[in-house]
Amino acid sequence: MPGKMNPRERWSLLLIDELPDRPPVYPLVTCHAARVYNCDLIEYCTDGRILAEAQLEAQRLYGHEGLSVFTDVGIIAEAMGSKYHLREFEVPILDSPLITDTAMIGELGPPDPTTQGRLPVYLEAIDRMYSAAGDVLPIFAFIPCPFTTAAGLRGVDNFLMDTVLEPQAAHDLLDVSLKSAITFCDECILAGALPMLVDPLASGSVISRTTYSHFAKSYQQKLIAHLHRYDLDVTLHICGDTSNMLDLIPQTGADLFSFDLADVDSATDAMGDRVRLVGNLPPHGLLPSSNLSVTQGTNSIMEMGLKNPKGFVLSTGCEVPIRCEAQKLHTLINIGKNARYEEVW
């Protein structure tokens, strides 16, 4: 149909403070794509071609408006030396952290994204997606923030305790994690993706405002500053409950905030004049077992989202579950696609 914007066009208007015809619809379809493509998670997480094809296939099925390059939050920590366990039906998880003693931190350096760990998988996937559909679909490379990478290097419990017991060691580890994130971001950009920063562990469900400010936010800030130097629009995604830190988010410099357990209205109050919001149907609502009404939930989110002054992207609060029920995701996406801003011109 003539006159219908494509996803790239819609996003590009959103990012220059223009209202597109409607908010982009971008649920975080990550490893669920493997299920759509009918491959196992090990293939999906280790083969860039498969990751790319699965993403493209899922996008063709659902028609959501962005491709997501994401397997797990350990991607950088693994490339630096932590061991992750790959599994057929679930996402990779941390097996043994590299840093068993804080004295080891000094020897760490950023990985080479073109050779180390599964970083080349991301780069190949991005390159393939970009060549296949980069003109009409933005590609988001999910980059773990330093806080999350540091936890992957040190072990979650140990790293969280380091923030209390050995703050200097925690900062040293964060510094090298930051350098690694920058190195990886640069390669993802060159492959054609826009970095989307994810910091699941920097969640208000896990750490306090103070810990967030000192150990997570300042590194998010530095990473975002690096990307801003290239004039890139940065999405920051934090999982879990962020309601106690909403007011701090604009300080990171993030252009878009993708969030989970906070309501859109509160997020609008806290940052709606400066930050575009991306959210936030609870992912469990998409499971076959859930009796949450996707229609009701999405409608209410959309209603709030349309009012956010700086713009809105309809999404899920976190990753779409691997076993998501297709029909439920279709429902969310259709509601999004039927929403309208006032006439463009």
Binding site: G134, I189, A193, L194, D231
Partner: peptide
């Protein structure tokens, strides 16, 4: 913030200008 424009081609690659590669 938007009035700056001294940015390299890679910036515009990310936003879909594929030929710049």
């Amino acid at each position: 913030e938007w009035s700056q424009y001294l940015f390299p081609p890679s910036t515009h690659v990310v936003y879909g200008n594929r030929l710049l590669r």
